[in-house]
Design a protein around this nucleic acid. Structure first.
Lengths: 207, 207
DNA sequence: GTCTATATCCAGATAGAC
DNA sequence: GTCTATCTGGATATAGAC
Protein backbone atom coordinates (compact mmCIF):
# COMPACT_ATOMS: atom_id res chain seq x y z
CA UNK A 1 0.00 0.00 0.00
CA UNK A 2 2.77 2.45 0.88
CA UNK A 3 5.08 4.00 -1.68
CA UNK A 4 8.20 1.94 -2.28
CA UNK A 5 10.57 4.80 -1.64
CA UNK A 6 9.61 7.10 1.20
CA UNK A 7 10.44 10.63 0.19
CA UNK A 8 12.35 12.81 2.60
CA UNK A 9 9.33 15.08 2.75
CA UNK A 10 7.13 12.23 3.87
CA UNK A 11 9.64 11.33 6.53
CA UNK A 12 9.87 14.94 7.68
CA UNK A 13 6.10 15.04 7.97
CA UNK A 14 5.99 11.83 9.94
CA UNK A 15 8.65 13.02 12.34
CA UNK A 16 6.88 16.33 12.87
CA UNK A 17 3.52 14.63 13.26
CA UNK A 18 5.00 12.22 15.76
CA UNK A 19 6.32 15.08 17.86
CA UNK A 20 3.12 17.12 17.80
CA UNK A 21 0.57 14.30 18.13
CA UNK A 22 2.45 12.61 20.96
CA UNK A 23 2.87 15.83 22.91
CA UNK A 24 -0.67 17.19 22.38
CA UNK A 25 -2.85 14.23 21.50
CA UNK A 26 -5.13 14.01 18.48
CA UNK A 27 -7.58 16.66 19.65
CA UNK A 28 -4.91 19.08 20.80
CA UNK A 29 -2.74 18.74 17.70
CA UNK A 30 -3.00 21.25 14.86
CA UNK A 31 -2.14 20.48 11.25
CA UNK A 32 -0.61 23.96 11.03
CA UNK A 33 1.77 23.19 13.86
CA UNK A 34 2.82 19.94 12.22
CA UNK A 35 3.46 21.79 8.98
CA UNK A 36 5.57 24.40 10.77
CA UNK A 37 7.49 21.71 12.59
CA UNK A 38 8.22 19.95 9.29
CA UNK A 39 9.02 23.29 7.65
CA UNK A 40 6.61 22.68 4.80
CA UNK A 41 3.22 23.90 3.78
CA UNK A 42 -0.01 22.78 5.34
CA UNK A 43 -1.41 21.62 2.00
CA UNK A 44 1.43 19.14 1.63
CA UNK A 45 0.21 17.27 4.68
CA UNK A 46 -2.99 16.50 2.86
CA UNK A 47 -1.12 15.64 -0.30
CA UNK A 48 0.86 12.93 1.47
CA UNK A 49 -1.75 11.84 4.00
CA UNK A 50 -5.28 12.62 2.88
CA UNK A 51 -6.51 13.67 6.30
CA UNK A 52 -5.61 14.39 9.88
CA UNK A 53 -7.09 11.04 10.79
CA UNK A 54 -4.86 9.11 8.39
CA UNK A 55 -1.77 10.97 9.52
CA UNK A 56 -2.65 10.32 13.11
CA UNK A 57 -3.16 6.64 12.49
CA UNK A 58 0.30 6.37 10.95
CA UNK A 59 1.79 8.01 14.04
CA UNK A 60 -0.25 5.94 16.44
CA UNK A 61 0.70 2.62 14.87
CA UNK A 62 4.35 3.63 14.80
CA UNK A 63 4.26 4.60 18.47
CA UNK A 64 2.42 1.47 19.42
CA UNK A 65 4.76 -0.99 17.72
CA UNK A 66 7.71 0.85 19.19
CA UNK A 67 6.70 -0.37 22.64
CA UNK A 68 5.14 -3.73 21.85
CA UNK A 69 8.11 -5.71 20.50
CA UNK A 70 10.01 -4.94 23.67
CA UNK A 71 7.38 -6.90 25.53
CA UNK A 72 7.04 -9.77 23.08
CA UNK A 73 10.73 -10.50 22.73
CA UNK A 74 11.09 -11.17 26.40
CA UNK A 75 7.77 -12.87 27.04
CA UNK A 76 8.42 -15.34 24.22
CA UNK A 77 12.06 -16.01 24.99
CA UNK A 78 13.29 -19.21 26.57
CA UNK A 79 14.69 -17.75 29.74
CA UNK A 80 13.79 -18.92 33.21
CA UNK A 81 10.99 -17.00 34.87
CA UNK A 82 13.21 -14.91 37.10
CA UNK A 83 15.61 -14.09 34.27
CA UNK A 84 12.65 -13.21 32.14
CA UNK A 85 11.40 -10.78 34.75
CA UNK A 86 14.81 -9.19 35.09
CA UNK A 87 15.19 -8.94 31.33
CA UNK A 88 11.73 -7.60 30.83
CA UNK A 89 12.11 -4.76 33.28
CA UNK A 90 15.52 -3.75 31.96
CA UNK A 91 14.54 -3.85 28.30
CA UNK A 92 11.20 -2.21 28.87
CA UNK A 93 12.44 0.59 31.09
CA UNK A 94 15.05 1.36 28.43
CA UNK A 95 12.42 1.46 25.71
CA UNK A 96 10.26 3.71 27.87
CA UNK A 97 13.18 5.97 28.70
CA UNK A 98 13.75 6.54 25.01
CA UNK A 99 10.04 7.24 24.47
CA UNK A 100 8.81 8.67 27.75
CA UNK A 101 5.71 10.37 26.35
CA UNK A 102 4.37 7.46 24.36
CA UNK A 103 2.59 5.61 27.20
CA UNK A 104 0.29 8.44 28.21
CA UNK A 105 -0.29 9.20 24.53
CA UNK A 106 -1.32 5.64 23.70
CA UNK A 107 -3.39 5.11 26.82
CA UNK A 108 -5.21 8.42 26.44
CA UNK A 109 -6.07 7.84 22.80
CA UNK A 110 -7.17 4.28 23.47
CA UNK A 111 -9.45 5.49 26.23
CA UNK A 112 -11.35 7.74 23.83
CA UNK A 113 -11.30 5.67 20.69
CA UNK A 114 -11.58 2.15 21.94
CA UNK A 115 -13.40 1.02 18.81
CA UNK A 116 -11.41 2.89 16.23
CA UNK A 117 -8.03 1.81 17.54
CA UNK A 118 -8.65 -1.55 19.15
CA UNK A 119 -8.08 -3.43 15.89
CA UNK A 120 -4.54 -2.07 15.93
CA UNK A 121 -4.04 -3.49 19.39
CA UNK A 122 -5.53 -6.81 18.38
CA UNK A 123 -3.49 -7.10 15.20
CA UNK A 124 -0.28 -6.45 17.08
CA UNK A 125 0.02 -10.06 18.13
CA UNK A 126 0.26 -9.47 21.84
CA UNK A 127 -0.18 -12.95 23.21
CA UNK A 128 0.83 -13.83 26.74
CA UNK A 129 -0.27 -17.48 26.79
CA UNK A 130 3.29 -18.80 26.74
CA UNK A 131 4.27 -16.65 29.70
CA UNK A 132 1.08 -17.55 31.55
CA UNK A 133 1.85 -21.25 31.16
CA UNK A 134 5.37 -20.72 32.41
CA UNK A 135 4.10 -19.04 35.54
CA UNK A 136 1.61 -21.84 36.14
CA UNK A 137 4.40 -24.40 35.78
CA UNK A 138 6.55 -22.61 38.32
CA UNK A 139 3.64 -22.55 40.73
CA UNK A 140 2.97 -26.27 40.24
CA UNK A 141 6.65 -27.00 40.76
CA UNK A 142 6.44 -25.12 44.03
CA UNK A 143 9.07 -22.60 43.00
CA UNK A 144 6.94 -19.51 43.53
CA UNK A 145 3.85 -18.63 45.53
CA UNK A 146 0.45 -19.14 43.93
CA UNK A 147 -0.58 -16.09 41.92
CA UNK A 148 -2.88 -15.50 38.97
CA UNK A 149 -0.40 -15.07 36.08
CA UNK A 150 -2.44 -12.18 34.73
CA UNK A 151 -2.10 -10.38 38.05
CA UNK A 152 1.65 -10.83 37.76
CA UNK A 153 1.69 -9.48 34.21
CA UNK A 154 -0.32 -6.43 35.20
CA UNK A 155 2.00 -5.85 38.15
CA UNK A 156 5.06 -6.01 35.92
CA UNK A 157 3.56 -3.60 33.41
CA UNK A 158 2.32 -1.29 36.15
CA UNK A 159 5.68 -1.02 37.87
CA UNK A 160 7.41 -0.20 34.60
CA UNK A 161 4.90 2.08 32.92
CA UNK A 162 3.31 4.03 35.76
CA UNK A 163 6.27 6.28 36.59
CA UNK A 164 6.13 7.60 33.04
CA UNK A 165 2.42 8.33 32.94
CA UNK A 166 2.52 9.73 36.48
CA UNK A 167 5.63 11.78 35.88
CA UNK A 168 4.12 15.25 36.41
CA UNK A 169 2.59 14.33 39.75
CA UNK A 170 5.58 12.37 40.96
CA UNK A 171 7.95 15.17 40.04
CA UNK A 172 5.84 17.60 42.03
CA UNK A 173 5.20 15.46 45.07
CA UNK A 174 8.41 13.47 45.38
CA UNK A 175 11.17 15.24 43.47
CA UNK A 176 10.72 18.98 43.89
CA UNK A 177 10.25 19.36 40.14
CA UNK A 178 13.82 18.17 39.58
CA UNK A 179 14.14 16.42 36.23
CA UNK A 180 17.52 15.05 37.21
CA UNK A 181 16.26 13.47 40.42
CA UNK A 182 13.45 11.89 38.47
CA UNK A 183 15.85 10.43 35.90
CA UNK A 184 18.04 8.97 38.63
CA UNK A 185 14.94 7.51 40.21
CA UNK A 186 14.00 5.71 36.98
CA UNK A 187 17.55 4.50 36.55
CA UNK A 188 17.48 3.03 40.04
CA UNK A 189 14.24 1.25 39.26
CA UNK A 190 16.04 -1.05 36.84
CA UNK A 191 17.41 -2.79 39.91
CA UNK A 192 14.60 -2.07 42.36
CA UNK A 193 11.67 -3.37 40.34
CA UNK A 194 13.00 -6.83 39.46
CA UNK A 195 14.00 -7.60 43.01
CA UNK A 196 10.68 -6.22 44.22
CA UNK A 197 8.76 -8.56 41.94
CA UNK A 198 10.94 -11.58 42.55
CA UNK A 199 10.86 -11.04 46.27
CA UNK A 200 7.09 -10.76 46.11
CA UNK A 201 6.56 -14.09 44.38
CA UNK A 202 9.37 -16.04 46.03
CA UNK A 203 8.41 -18.48 48.74
CA UNK A 204 9.31 -17.61 52.29
CA UNK A 205 11.39 -20.19 54.16
CA UNK A 206 9.34 -19.79 57.32
CA UNK A 207 6.21 -21.63 56.19
CA UNK B 1 -15.55 33.77 45.59
CA UNK B 2 -18.32 31.27 44.83
CA UNK B 3 -21.99 32.01 45.28
CA UNK B 4 -23.29 31.04 48.68
CA UNK B 5 -26.14 28.97 47.33
CA UNK B 6 -25.30 26.86 44.30
CA UNK B 7 -28.26 26.93 41.96
CA UNK B 8 -29.56 23.67 40.56
CA UNK B 9 -28.60 24.93 37.11
CA UNK B 10 -25.04 25.42 38.19
CA UNK B 11 -24.96 21.93 39.62
CA UNK B 12 -26.45 20.49 36.44
CA UNK B 13 -23.76 22.24 34.43
CA UNK B 14 -21.03 20.95 36.66
CA UNK B 15 -22.30 17.41 36.46
CA UNK B 16 -22.56 17.57 32.68
CA UNK B 17 -19.15 19.19 32.37
CA UNK B 18 -17.67 16.52 34.59
CA UNK B 19 -19.05 13.80 32.38
CA UNK B 20 -17.93 15.34 29.11
CA UNK B 21 -14.52 16.67 30.17
CA UNK B 22 -13.52 13.46 31.89
CA UNK B 23 -14.56 11.29 28.98
CA UNK B 24 -13.10 13.49 26.21
CA UNK B 25 -10.46 15.66 27.81
CA UNK B 26 -10.27 19.43 27.54
CA UNK B 27 -9.39 19.50 23.84
CA UNK B 28 -11.96 16.90 22.86
CA UNK B 29 -14.81 18.39 24.88
CA UNK B 30 -17.36 20.69 23.26
CA UNK B 31 -19.33 23.33 25.09
CA UNK B 32 -22.31 22.40 22.95
CA UNK B 33 -22.16 18.81 24.17
CA UNK B 34 -21.97 19.94 27.78
CA UNK B 35 -25.00 22.15 27.22
CA UNK B 36 -26.94 19.29 25.66
CA UNK B 37 -25.95 16.99 28.50
CA UNK B 38 -27.15 19.55 31.05
CA UNK B 39 -30.28 20.18 28.96
CA UNK B 40 -29.72 23.91 28.91
CA UNK B 41 -28.51 26.46 26.42
CA UNK B 42 -24.89 27.00 25.46
CA UNK B 43 -25.02 30.64 26.46
CA UNK B 44 -25.86 29.66 30.02
CA UNK B 45 -22.52 27.93 30.36
CA UNK B 46 -20.82 31.24 29.81
CA UNK B 47 -23.21 32.99 32.12
CA UNK B 48 -22.25 30.70 35.01
CA UNK B 49 -18.62 30.05 34.11
CA UNK B 50 -17.18 32.82 31.95
CA UNK B 51 -15.18 30.47 29.72
CA UNK B 52 -14.40 26.90 28.80
CA UNK B 53 -11.13 27.23 30.72
CA UNK B 54 -12.86 28.25 33.94
CA UNK B 55 -15.42 25.50 33.66
CA UNK B 56 -12.69 22.98 33.01
CA UNK B 57 -10.69 24.12 35.99
CA UNK B 58 -13.69 23.62 38.26
CA UNK B 59 -14.07 20.08 36.96
CA UNK B 60 -10.38 19.32 37.17
CA UNK B 61 -10.04 20.45 40.77
CA UNK B 62 -13.13 18.50 41.74
CA UNK B 63 -11.77 15.35 40.08
CA UNK B 64 -8.37 15.83 41.62
CA UNK B 65 -9.51 16.26 45.19
CA UNK B 66 -11.80 13.27 44.79
CA UNK B 67 -8.76 11.02 44.59
CA UNK B 68 -6.29 12.84 46.82
CA UNK B 69 -7.95 12.58 50.24
CA UNK B 70 -8.10 8.82 49.86
CA UNK B 71 -4.32 8.83 49.79
CA UNK B 72 -3.79 11.35 52.56
CA UNK B 73 -6.10 9.77 55.06
CA UNK B 74 -4.18 6.54 55.01
CA UNK B 75 -0.67 7.90 54.67
CA UNK B 76 -1.19 10.17 57.67
CA UNK B 77 -2.96 7.66 59.86
CA UNK B 78 -1.34 6.00 62.85
CA UNK B 79 -1.52 2.44 61.62
CA UNK B 80 1.43 0.09 61.42
CA UNK B 81 3.16 0.00 58.05
CA UNK B 82 1.61 -3.26 56.90
CA UNK B 83 -1.86 -2.23 58.01
CA UNK B 84 -1.35 1.07 56.26
CA UNK B 85 -0.48 -0.72 53.03
CA UNK B 86 -3.52 -2.96 53.31
CA UNK B 87 -5.75 -0.01 54.10
CA UNK B 88 -4.33 2.14 51.37
CA UNK B 89 -4.90 -0.43 48.64
CA UNK B 90 -8.42 -1.19 49.75
CA UNK B 91 -9.50 2.42 50.15
CA UNK B 92 -7.79 3.56 47.00
CA UNK B 93 -9.04 0.75 44.77
CA UNK B 94 -12.55 1.54 45.98
CA UNK B 95 -12.14 5.22 45.19
CA UNK B 96 -10.79 4.34 41.76
CA UNK B 97 -13.58 1.87 41.12
CA UNK B 98 -16.09 4.63 41.73
CA UNK B 99 -14.18 6.97 39.42
CA UNK B 100 -12.47 4.73 36.90
CA UNK B 101 -11.93 7.40 34.25
CA UNK B 102 -10.43 10.05 36.46
CA UNK B 103 -6.83 8.78 36.53
CA UNK B 104 -6.25 8.87 32.78
CA UNK B 105 -8.06 12.21 32.67
CA UNK B 106 -5.88 13.80 35.33
CA UNK B 107 -2.63 12.31 34.09
CA UNK B 108 -3.33 13.29 30.50
CA UNK B 109 -4.22 16.86 31.35
CA UNK B 110 -1.25 17.24 33.66
CA UNK B 111 1.06 16.01 30.93
CA UNK B 112 -0.03 18.80 28.61
CA UNK B 113 -0.50 21.61 31.04
CA UNK B 114 2.17 21.04 33.60
CA UNK B 115 2.49 24.75 34.34
CA UNK B 116 -1.16 25.70 34.31
CA UNK B 117 -2.26 22.88 36.60
CA UNK B 118 0.75 22.19 38.78
CA UNK B 119 -0.27 24.81 41.32
CA UNK B 120 -3.41 22.78 41.91
CA UNK B 121 -1.29 19.73 42.62
CA UNK B 122 0.99 21.67 44.90
CA UNK B 123 -1.81 23.33 46.84
CA UNK B 124 -3.44 19.97 47.46
CA UNK B 125 -1.20 19.28 50.43
CA UNK B 126 0.13 15.95 49.26
CA UNK B 127 2.94 15.35 51.65
CA UNK B 128 4.45 11.92 52.13
CA UNK B 129 7.18 12.80 54.65
CA UNK B 130 5.40 11.08 57.53
CA UNK B 131 5.05 7.88 55.57
CA UNK B 132 8.65 8.08 54.35
CA UNK B 133 9.88 8.35 57.93
CA UNK B 134 7.79 5.39 58.95
CA UNK B 135 9.33 3.25 56.22
CA UNK B 136 12.82 4.33 57.24
CA UNK B 137 12.09 3.40 60.84
CA UNK B 138 10.90 -0.06 59.86
CA UNK B 139 14.07 -0.55 57.83
CA UNK B 140 16.26 0.57 60.74
CA UNK B 141 14.39 -1.76 63.06
CA UNK B 142 15.13 -4.59 60.68
CA UNK B 143 11.47 -5.34 60.06
CA UNK B 144 11.56 -4.93 56.28
CA UNK B 145 14.22 -5.09 53.59
CA UNK B 146 16.04 -1.86 52.70
CA UNK B 147 14.14 0.09 50.05
CA UNK B 148 13.96 3.75 49.07
CA UNK B 149 10.59 4.81 50.54
CA UNK B 150 9.79 6.77 47.41
CA UNK B 151 10.23 3.64 45.34
CA UNK B 152 7.76 1.92 47.63
CA UNK B 153 5.26 4.75 47.29
CA UNK B 154 5.51 4.71 43.51
CA UNK B 155 5.05 0.95 43.51
CA UNK B 156 1.93 1.21 45.65
CA UNK B 157 0.45 3.90 43.42
CA UNK B 158 1.43 2.02 40.27
CA UNK B 159 -0.17 -1.24 41.32
CA UNK B 160 -3.43 0.53 42.21
CA UNK B 161 -3.72 3.07 39.40
CA UNK B 162 -2.27 1.34 36.36
CA UNK B 163 -5.08 -1.16 35.74
CA UNK B 164 -7.45 1.79 35.34
CA UNK B 165 -5.32 3.77 32.90
CA UNK B 166 -4.38 0.61 31.01
CA UNK B 167 -7.91 -0.73 30.95
CA UNK B 168 -8.46 -0.69 27.17
CA UNK B 169 -5.26 -2.62 26.46
CA UNK B 170 -5.69 -5.03 29.33
CA UNK B 171 -9.25 -5.78 28.35
CA UNK B 172 -8.12 -6.57 24.83
CA UNK B 173 -5.03 -8.58 25.66
CA UNK B 174 -6.04 -10.36 28.85
CA UNK B 175 -9.81 -10.39 29.11
CA UNK B 176 -11.29 -10.85 25.64
CA UNK B 177 -13.03 -7.47 25.92
CA UNK B 178 -15.12 -8.78 28.80
CA UNK B 179 -16.06 -5.96 31.15
CA UNK B 180 -17.20 -8.45 33.79
CA UNK B 181 -13.91 -10.35 33.80
CA UNK B 182 -12.10 -7.07 34.16
CA UNK B 183 -14.23 -6.04 37.13
CA UNK B 184 -13.63 -9.36 38.83
CA UNK B 185 -9.94 -8.91 38.19
CA UNK B 186 -9.93 -5.54 39.94
CA UNK B 187 -11.94 -6.92 42.81
CA UNK B 188 -9.40 -9.70 43.26
CA UNK B 189 -6.60 -7.17 43.33
CA UNK B 190 -7.82 -5.85 46.68
CA UNK B 191 -6.33 -9.00 48.15
CA UNK B 192 -3.56 -9.64 45.63
CA UNK B 193 -1.85 -6.26 45.72
CA UNK B 194 -1.37 -5.89 49.50
CA UNK B 195 0.11 -9.37 49.86
CA UNK B 196 2.26 -8.76 46.79
CA UNK B 197 3.70 -5.59 48.32
CA UNK B 198 4.09 -6.97 51.81
CA UNK B 199 5.71 -10.12 50.50
CA UNK B 200 8.08 -8.01 48.43
CA UNK B 201 9.36 -5.95 51.35
CA UNK B 202 9.26 -8.64 54.02
CA UNK B 203 12.56 -10.19 55.05
CA UNK B 204 13.24 -13.75 53.95
CA UNK B 205 14.12 -16.18 56.71
CA UNK B 206 16.93 -17.75 54.67
CA UNK B 207 19.50 -14.94 54.98
C1' DG C 1 5.60 18.10 -5.50
C1' DT C 2 5.00 22.41 -3.61
C1' DC C 3 3.00 26.56 -3.05
C1' DT C 4 -1.02 30.49 -2.27
C1' DA C 5 -5.56 31.32 -1.80
C1' DT C 6 -9.88 29.99 -0.49
C1' DA C 7 -13.92 27.17 0.67
C1' DT C 8 -16.41 25.31 4.40
C1' DC C 9 -17.43 24.35 8.72
C1' DC C 10 -17.62 24.65 13.59
C1' DA C 11 -15.86 26.16 17.85
C1' DG C 12 -16.07 29.59 21.87
C1' DA C 13 -17.96 33.67 23.11
C1' DT C 14 -21.22 37.74 23.15
C1' DA C 15 -25.53 40.78 22.29
C1' DG C 16 -29.76 41.55 23.37
C1' DA C 17 -34.79 40.21 23.74
C1' DC C 18 -37.75 38.24 27.16
C1' DG D 1 -31.77 33.55 34.50
C1' DT D 2 -32.67 31.79 30.18
C1' DC D 3 -33.25 31.95 25.56
C1' DT D 4 -32.21 32.95 20.07
C1' DA D 5 -29.30 34.87 16.98
C1' DT D 6 -24.93 36.22 15.72
C1' DC D 7 -19.97 37.58 15.78
C1' DT D 8 -15.34 36.15 15.13
C1' DG D 9 -11.60 33.26 14.89
C1' DG D 10 -9.50 29.20 13.65
C1' DA D 11 -9.69 24.50 12.13
C1' DT D 12 -9.52 20.88 8.23
C1' DA D 13 -9.59 20.41 3.68
C1' DT D 14 -9.53 21.58 -1.35
C1' DA D 15 -8.67 24.27 -5.86
C1' DG D 16 -5.67 25.54 -8.84
C1' DA D 17 -1.29 28.05 -10.32
C1' DC D 18 3.51 26.96 -10.90
Amino acid sequence: MRKELDSTTELAILEAARKVFIMKGFDGARMQEIANEAEINKALLHYYFRSKDKLFEAVFIEAFVKLVPAILIVLNSKLSLFDKIRDFVEVYLDALNQNPHIPIFILHELSHNEDRLSRIVRSSGLNPTLFIQQVKDEISAGNIIPIDPRQLIVNMLALCIFPFVGRPILKTVLFNQSEQEFRDFIQTRKAVVPSFIISAISKKQSS
